[in-house]
Amino acid sequence: MNAHTRRRIRRTIRRLPGDALKLAVVLCFVFPFYWMICTAFKPYSEAISVPVTFWPRTFSLEGIASILSARSVDVMQYLMNSVVITFGTIALQMVIMIPAAYAFARFEFFGKNICFALVLLALMIPGQITYITVYLTMADRNLLDTLWPQILPFGANAFGIFLLRQGFKQIPEEIIESAQLDSASQVQIVMQIMVPMCRSVLLTIMLFSFVSSWNNYFWPLVMTNSEKVRPLTMMLVRVLDSELGTRWNEIMAANLLIVLPVLGVYVFTSGRIIKAFTYNGIK
């Protein structure tokens, strides 16, 4: 054994207590999700048995089956609504965001700063202040209890406009000028040069929108009443209120439906998501 290996082994041993503690801390953050999955695959009798089992003694699909069988709730409807709301929001945001970011990044016009200040204001003002008026507006237009009040209020994604503007600004002027010499139209410049060059920023924004839209709880709660238009996040309370008492294995099975898509996306894009969420343009 040479000196180098010996040093490495010694270092590993010295680090062992710290690393073990680190793993224990990591466990605190991950275990609740494991516990959700574990409970979802237990039969009800085992979920509430003592002593607690950390691995399903009898592996059972009882919870998942009863959620999917639509005995008490129509899961497919909830799932459809979530999907439509999420992708509708992302699509609407893109249509609004791309031209706005292009204008803020590339043009000089009177009132630009005021308009941009409005974008920044939207970043600061929480939904808890604005939803009362939005509710009344939607009521006026007979749009309450539809999918619209869950999509439209998020149409202008202030954070996205902000981020995409930075991205557009970084594209060298020469590229656009040479395209203009080739008599490319404004639409062509945006769609064929700028958008493809900012693919990664756009993907980041989309991931961000996906997570916040999929997880939205407050707006559906306020704006809707009926199961027909409510997203998955509204389903948990319905499962909880089942007449059979608190069936925790069913609740966790339902929860799995909300959590798994996001966890799945995270597993594949963790680096990008972390970058997207920790980017806040400070400094």
């Binding site: 409005l118 204001l121 939803y131 009362i132 008026t133 202008a156 404004q186």
Partner: peptide, 25 residues
């Protein structure tokens, strides 16, 4: 006035769902 056309949708949404709601509340 092309840039105004570009930011118009965003501004409409921001006024409708942020600025007006604050003032109205």
């Amino acid at each position: 006035f092309f840039p105004y056309l570009l930011i118009l949708p965003a501004m409409i949404f921001l006024v409708l769902f942020v600025l007006y709601p604050i003032l109205n509340v």
